[in-house]
Design a protein around this nucleic acid. Structure first.
Lengths: 116, 116
DNA sequence: TATATCGCTTTCCTTTAGGAAAGTACTTTA
DNA sequence: TAAAGTACTTTCCTAAAGGAAAGCGATATA
């Protein structure tokens, strides 16, 4: 029989939410995905488009995002060799999350602004 | 005239997303909101419902969430005094975010599972 | 020849998050 | 009187995130 517990079980929701947060955690991953998605393909462009992002952090986050198959790194064999970053189709599945976060942020700022 | 820039501007989306992430950052805030939302009102119940959550972290996160007006702390003047945590109506506005994260997490697990 | 750009890497350092364990003040139950 | 529960706090520690600055090997431009 089941062990007595006084609390309500919320694992059905908490577990997948935590799984998602593990993929998109940190300050930078979603901003980078947004920037690449909007058309910034070059390392320097991505860096310039996001305030406060340092090259070290960008390089690390790009690697993480590549591993999760959200971004692909394309080497263009030209003289000089160029490197281009693109979203994978899978990254598009993050759109509902990005829109939800964006909407909430816009609304939250309104709320705070009207209060004070 | 405008300064030359080679990158596409993504601040319209990045800024509100970052504003939201500042409110719900970390491993624990959304799980706690989910747990309280599902009916866990007591400190110990919330703690027990979320795997790995320590009392120190829970106490800190509850304070943060109170400050952001997502949770209210209710003191029940009984013998002994009891303390109850509830979501504010404002916390309900996070639902689209939570559902989006949940759906993505479920789908992501499927994707990984089918691959390997 | 000198300087600049690109896509990073490297080093060093600070801050923050988070975990383990014990303690505390109070009350209730046996 | 002892043990247990409630809602935390406190201390101590580690790991990870993040920032500042310089460097590097290649090519390109003046």
């Amino acid at each position: 029989m089941a062990v007595k517990k006084g609390y309500n079980n919320c694992l059905d929701t908490v577990r997948p939410v935590r799984d998602t947060l593990e993929v998109i955690n940190g300050k930078w991953k979603l901003p980078i995905i947004i920037s690449v998605g909007i058309g910034n393909e070059r390392f320097t462009d991505i860096q310039d488009s996001i305030d406060g992002l340092t090259p070290k952090v960008l390089a690390k986050e790009l690697k993480d995002l590549e591993q999760h198959q959200l971004i692909k790194r394309i080497i263009i064999e030209d003289y000089p060799v160029k490197i281009s970053y693109r979203l994978t189709p899978y990254a598009d599945t993050l759109n509902p999350i990005i829109f939800a976060l964006k909407d909430w942020g816009i609304n939250h700022k309104k709320k705070i602004f009207n209060k004070e």
